[in-house]
Simulated assay, not measured.
Amino acid sequence: MSVTYSLRDARRLPKPRAMLTLIKPITWFPPIWAYLCGVVSSGVPLTSAPWLVLIGMVLAGPVVCGMSQAANDWCDRHVDAINEPDRPIPSGAIPGRWGLWIALAMSGLALVLGSTLGPWGFGATVFGVLAAWAYSAEPVRLKRSGVWGPGLVGLCYEGLPWFTGAAVLAAGAPAGEVVIIAALYALGAHGIMTLNDFKALEGDRQTGVNSLPVTLGPERAARVACVVMALPQLAVIGLLLAWDRPFHAAAIGLLVLAQLWAMRILLSDPKGRAPWYNGTGVTAYVTGMMIAAFAIRTIGGAG
C-alpha cells in the first residue's frame, strides 16, 4: 500500500478527531509523570511556583510529546500504510501535507512555551524538539537503530522531563543525585521502548528499520528488554540504600519483584504479551520513579 497526495487532498481540512488521534493523548502520561518526578525531586514545594508546574506539564505532554507523535507519523506514513493503515495519515483522515504542517506548528509552539521556563527549561525544550525530528526524519532517522532509537526516546520520555522539572523548580542545575536517578530510569526506559517496537515488527522488516525485535527476533529482544529495564532499577535500590533511604529502597524492590513476575509471563509469548506488559510491568516501573523522587528530595534538593 502506498501513500500519495493529490491536489484535492491538499485542499481538504483534517478532521478534528483525526488531529487529536495524530498527537496520541495516551502517550502524554510518561513525560508528564517524569516532569512531576523532577519537580518532586527538586525539593522545592509545588505551591511555590504552580504556574511553572502547569506549563511544564502541558509542554512535556500535549505539546512536545504530541509534536513528536505527529512528526513520527508523518515520517512513518509509508510504514504505517503497512502496519496500521487506519492511522490518520495513511487513511486520509489527515490529508495532504497536513501531518507535516501540524508537526512543524507544534515545534514552534513548544519553543515559545519553553522560553517561559527560563534558560534550563528552554534549553531542554530545544533538545527535545531536535531529538524528536532526529528520531523520525531523514537523513538522521535514529529510529532505524535498535540501540540509538529506543535510547533517545527513553531519554526524552523519562530522563529529560525529569531533569527539566527539577531544573525549572530549583532555578538552576539539579543536584547530582537527581541527575543520576533520572539517568538510570531513562536507561531502563530503553527496554520499554523496545517492547513498543513489537507492534511494528512486519512494517519495520519491510522498510529497513532495524529495531531489536527485527534484528534479534522477538524472543531475544524481549529478554534484552527485560534485563535493560531491571538492572537500572537495581542500581537505584543500591543507591537509595547507600543514601540511607531503606524504606524507599524496599518499596521499589517490591515493585521490581512484581515486574519480574510480569516478565516471566511476557517471555512466554513476547509478541502477544508486549501490550499486556506495557499495562502492568510499566505501571510498576513508573510508580518506582515517583518513590525514588520522594526519596531524594531531601538529599540533594532544597527540602
Rank of each mutant, 00 (worst) to 15 (best):
R17I: 07
V228E: 15
L104F: 12
A225F: 13
T27A: 09
L241H: 07
G108P: 06
P88V: 10
F247N: 10
A175L: 04
A132M: 06
T298S: 14
A137E: 08
A262G: 06
G146H: 08
N72A: 08
S145P: 01
G114I: 03
A189D: 11
A124G: 03
V58M: 10
L266M: 11
V224Y: 14
A200L: 13
A93C: 03
V236H: 01
I252H: 09
W120S: 09
W74D: 13
Y5T: 15
T207D: 07
D76C: 04
P45T: 13
A71K: 06
V39Y: 01
V64A: 04
K24T: 12
S91L: 05
T215Y: 01
V3T: 10
L109K: 11
A103Q: 04
G176F: 05
T215M: 12
Y135W: 05
Y277E: 08
P246I: 10
S268F: 02
L267P: 03
T21S: 14
P218F: 07
P31V: 02
G92Y: 07
T280F: 15
L260M: 09
A81N: 01
S91A: 07
K24L: 11
A175P: 01
A18R: 04
V53H: 01
W148G: 00
A49P: 02
L260W: 14
A284W: 12
I181Q: 06
A225W: 13
G108N: 08
L184H: 05
L216R: 15
Q69R: 09
Y157Q: 12
A258V: 06
D86Y: 14
V286E: 00
I180Y: 09
L111Y: 09
M106W: 13
G56I: 10
G281N: 04
L234A: 04
R97V: 13
S48G: 00
G96P: 13
I23W: 04
C75T: 12
M289K: 05
W133T: 10
L260K: 07
L160F: 01
W101G: 10
D86L: 12
A103K: 01
A200I: 03
I89G: 03
L216I: 11
T194V: 15
P213M: 11
T287N: 07
F29K: 04
F127D: 00
N83P: 08
L257Y: 07
G253T: 09
R144E: 14
L212E: 11
K24N: 11
P119Q: 11
Y277M: 03
C226T: 15
A81G: 04
G301C: 12
G38S: 02
T215P: 00
L234V: 11
R245H: 07
V236L: 06
H190K: 05
W261V: 13
P45W: 14
T27K: 02
F127Q: 00
G146Y: 06
R220Y: 05
L266T: 10
